[in-house]
């Protein structure tokens, strides 16, 4: 390794064994704080936050819709960055991270779309509207599905990881272009529609529970990601000595 300017933990991350043990230590913390914050955010958002003066109580879907949409996007970025690290430094763990993140990101995108559609019914009067944000979320879901399909179509695991990483990076470059073009297309075709989440200055009683929910979902899906990553590590390192030692005793 010629590039020694990278911090030490970066190289430690490259070791599946170290990753397995550190995630094992982190999981209970993520589960506890994530679960607690989720409960707080859920009760706060559903029962205590004031209702919206225009949309009434259907506005409460925001506490699920916005965090899942944010997470779906940032998980895509995480997947692409992990893939890039795997490509550049040939780091196995990074490939495993990218593979574990993809289905979770797709699930988040589906959830964001579903909550958006359900929210749309009382707001716009129909289950689906080609709103700019929903449309680009749909495209994001397609990108996730493409990555997952490619990964499962290639038999060799290293080739699959590399190919998916290239595709994820191409998608990452395209996401801003897609977002911009969809937004522009949307303003062209339906001027001044009622936006789901664009509010002039949300009061604090509304956005603090939203923030709590965002953090809670980050923790919970981080937890899910680590669980998947550990399974992947065990599966791929099954012939390694440390795995035999760990499970043999």
């Amino acid at each position: 390794m010629a590039s020694s300017w990278l911090p030490r933990w970066f190289y430690q991350l490259a070791s599946p064994r170290w990753c397995y043990s550190i995630t094992g230590k982190l999981i209970p913390w993520f589960a506890a704080t994530g679960g607690l914050l989720f409960l707080v955010g859920l009760i706060w958002g559903l029962a205590f936050a004031p209702s919206d003066y225009q949309q009434g109580n259907s506005f409460r879907i925001i506490y699920l819709h916005v965090p899942t949409a944010i997470l779906a996007q940032s998980f895509y970025m995480m997947m692409a960055i992990a893939g890039a690290i795997g490509l550049i430094w040939k780091m196995k763990v990074a490939d495993m991270v990218a593979k574990s993140v993809a289905p979770l990101g797709a699930a988040l995108a589906v959830l964001a779309l579903a909550t958006g559609a359900i929210w749309g019914k009382p707001t716009w009067g129909s289950w689906w509207v080609w709103d700019a944000r929903l449309t680009s979320m749909l495209v994001l879901l397609f990108l996730y599905l493409g990555v997952m399909a490619l990964n499962s179509a290639i038999e060799s695991e290293t080739t699959a990881a590399k190919s998916t990483a290239v595709l994820a990076l191409v998608g990452l470059v395209n996401i801003p272009i897609i977002k911009y073009s969809v937004e522009w297309w949307n303003t062209l075709h339906q001027p001044a529609t009622f936006k789901l989440t664009e509010k002039p200055a949300m009061p604090a009683e509304m956005w603090i529970p939203l923030l709590v929910m965002v953090i809670a979902l980050y923790l919970l899906f981080g937890l899910a990601m680590m669980l998947r990553l550990r399974n992947e590590i065990l599966r791929r390192e099954r012939r390694a000595g440390w795995v035999k030692e760990l499970l043999g005793s």
Partner: peptide
């Protein structure tokens, strides 16, 4: 893989 990228 490609169709979503064709959208813009």
């Amino acid at each position: 893989l490609v169709l979503p990228l064709y959208i813009p």
